[in-house]
Design a protein around this nucleic acid. Structure first.
Length: 393
DNA sequence: ATTCTAACA
DNA sequence: TGTTAGCA
């Protein structure tokens, strides 16, 4: 194929010629120059390189990081190459879903226009507004890109914390009735939460009952051997591992390369993929069930909505969902909890609550039930819950 | 008509 | 990165 000049290359990639020159200035590419006029000349290789740069850029990687990444590819690091290819794939999925969403929005506007006659402006604004917010939400996962650094120490930390609690520790003794994970309904749940205002002292409890909660999740899913399951935010694969023991075919996605690396070595039999929770890199109706533990609270409330929609998309019509995470019963519970933490001067806990977006149990339940699910929930400790959602059918 | 470099926003 | 200017 004939080498492209800069304008052709730019239009093919959907970026500006200036951007391309800028990348060159930063040392990311080095196109040949025509001796006669000094015009840059881009070969297929250059184009591929630019494509890579552009894709990585879209995910919000800094040019510095891209330099580094490209370096590894140049050295023939296949492992890395695959990661970056998946990254590009993830971007494409995000775009695909965005497109679908826009189609959806316009369709809704058309419908509303037909039904209620001329659409009043406020409604139009509302639609446009939500559409904008959704898009913003999706962009925010760029930040997660740097989450990697935490990966290496993740498992150690969890291990350390659950081990540091003896089986007969006071805190678990004060919740003896939870030991037997009995499903209970929402109203009872709210009631029970009222005495949680004597909030626990330190933050280690956030991970206490960690393993019990994962067990619960796997039990509730109880996969039929051979069923396909997706673990969103699989981290190092602890939950997916339990489901594989039960002979499910597990796929895990995470937004962190480092996490996935660890996961791959821990569970060679597991499909592991880099991906955005808000644009799952899978076709519609791919999985029989879907689990997620300790991942939801990394998303903003808006993003959680998107994630739920995505889950439905990749799930089979009869697919079930089981979520384990720290949750508040409702907004009041959250407020009370924060007040208590303030009173205790527990800064660590306050920070944890403020920086995460622990789902509200009542909202989550409402959303799922509105979307055709029957739910049941079990509480493992003050905040830790496991929720199962099965299609009404 | 296009591209290039350089400089400024 | 976008924009603009002055060249080849």
């Amino acid at each position: 194929m004939r080498p492209l000049n800069i304008k052709e290359a730019a239009s093919r990639l959907g970026i500006s010629p200036r951007a391309i020159r800028f990348y060159e200035e930063k040392g990311l590419i080095l196109p040949a120059k025509q001796a006669s006029n000094g015009y840059r000349s881009y070969t297929e290789n250059d184009i591929w390189r630019l494509q890579t740069i552009s894709a990585l850029r879209e995910i919000g990687m800094s040019l510095q990081d891209i330099t580094h990444a490209l370096g590894e590819i140049d050295q023939g690091n296949q492992q890395r190459l695959e990661e970056y290819l998946e990254l590009q794939q993830a971007v494409m999925y995000a775009q695909w879903i965005e497109l679908k969403r826009m189609l959806d929005t316009t369709q809704r506007m058309i419908d509303l226009n037909r039904q209620d006659g001329p659409l009043d402006v406020s409604h139009l604004h509302e639609l446009a507004d939500s559409s904008r917010r959704l898009r913003e939400a999706r962009q925010n996962w760029h930040d997660r890109w740097n989450y990697d650094t935490q990966a290496a120490i993740h498992d150690e930390r969890v291990q350390a914390k659950s081990n540091s609690i003896p089986a007969s520790s006071p805190s678990s003794a004060s919740f003896p009735e939870e030991a037997d994970s009995m499903p209970y309904n929402e109203s009872r749940d709210v009631g029970e939460h009222q005495d949680t205002q004597k909030a626990p002292p330190s933050s280690f409890y956030l991970y206490h009952n960690y393993d019990e909660a994962l067990e619960q999740t796997a039990n509730w899913i109880s996969p039929v051997p051979g069923e396909h399951g997706l673990d969103i935010g699989t981290g190092t694969g602890n939950l997916a591992g339990k489901l594989m023991e039960r002979h499910a075919l597990m796929t895990g996605i995470d937004q962190s390369r480092e996490m996935l690396r660890t996961c791959r070595t821990k569970y060679p039999g597991m499909h592991v993929k880099l991906g955005n929770f808000l644009a799952l890199p899978f076709a519609d109706q791919t999985f029989d069930f879907l689990v997620s533990s300790f991942a939801f609270h990394h998303l903003s409330p808006d993003q959680q909505q998107l994630a739920l929609q995505e889950m439905q998309r990749v799930l089979t019509p009869r697919g079930r969902i089981c979520l384990t995470d720290l949750m508040f019963a409702d907004a009041l519970h959250r407020e009370a909890y924060i007040r208590q933490a303030e009173a205790d001067g527990n800064g660590e806990q306050l920070l944890a609550i403020r920086e995460r977006h622990f789902p509200l149990l009542d909202e989550l339940t409402r959303w799922l039930e509105t979307n055709g699910y029957v739910t049941k929930t079990v509480r493992h400790n003050e905040l830790l819950h496991t929720m199962l959602a099965v299609p009404l059918r």
